[in-house]
Design a protein around this nucleic acid. Structure first.
Lengths: 107, 107
DNA sequence: TATAAACATTTACGCTTGTCAATATTTATA
DNA sequence: TATAAATATTGACAAGCGTAAATGTTTATA
């Protein structure tokens, strides 16, 4: 998997409104799935699916306590996302664009 | 459209590896579509489709010159994206999470 | 041990979207 | 005006994914 595919995996996670809402709900503190579900209009199985996607992306972590699972934002990986976006879009040496001869007639 | 749907529109744009590669190609300078295409393994019509998606998201702008169209990154909206991610994931007053009574038994 | 609560998994369905071939449009130039 | 280059659009198809009902698993407790 190249770097674009790696990064796109994070964005695929973020491209569903309901998952953004879940991150918002988790922005202040950890919360168990049953409480997250209370604020949403989706089924329990659908929430479970979305939490799995969030966990797999690395944007959210979980801990188990008895029958509850507490989810929280992985702030380290949120910061890594900021860095990745910056690295992708900012001017840089040895850029991929320099591998193309840019002799297209310019204005 | 609520704020989650608005933001998800940006992430939907970024969730395709080929569009991330296009942003990378544009990271140093503007480039016309025919030159962008040289560095990719997709058809012309597919590139045209992706450029339209990038334009519609606001992440890329374009200017026309004769038969060429030059595309460039809209850095102002990249910065807005950083702010949106920060606003979503950081702790804040009047957070959506406080609207749920968090009386779930904690460890 | 039986029951209930919390969460995960399986299965099926429908919608979205990436892809390309074919064609259309626009502009420069011979 | 005819041709070629650059880009957009249309149409069709396949793959990915969000969704929920039904069911399974784990844990606490009566």
């Amino acid at each position: 998997m190249n770097k674009y595919e790696e990064l796109s995996k994070i964005f695929k996670t973020l491209c569903e409104p309901i998952r953004l809402q879940i991150l918002d709900i988790l922005s202040c503190d950890e919360m168990c799935a049953c409480k997250i579900l209370e604020g949403l209009l989706i089924s329990q199985s659908t929430l479970s699916h979305h939490m799995k996607v969030l966990i797999n992306s690395g944007l959210v972590t979980s801990r188990k306590d008895a029958t509850w699972i507490y989810y929280s934002i992985n702030r380290e990986n949120i910061e890594k996302l900021h860095v990745s976006i910056e690295e992708l879009t900012s001017q840089k040496d040895n850029c991929i664009c320099q591998k193309t001869d840019n002799n297209c007639k310019k204005a």
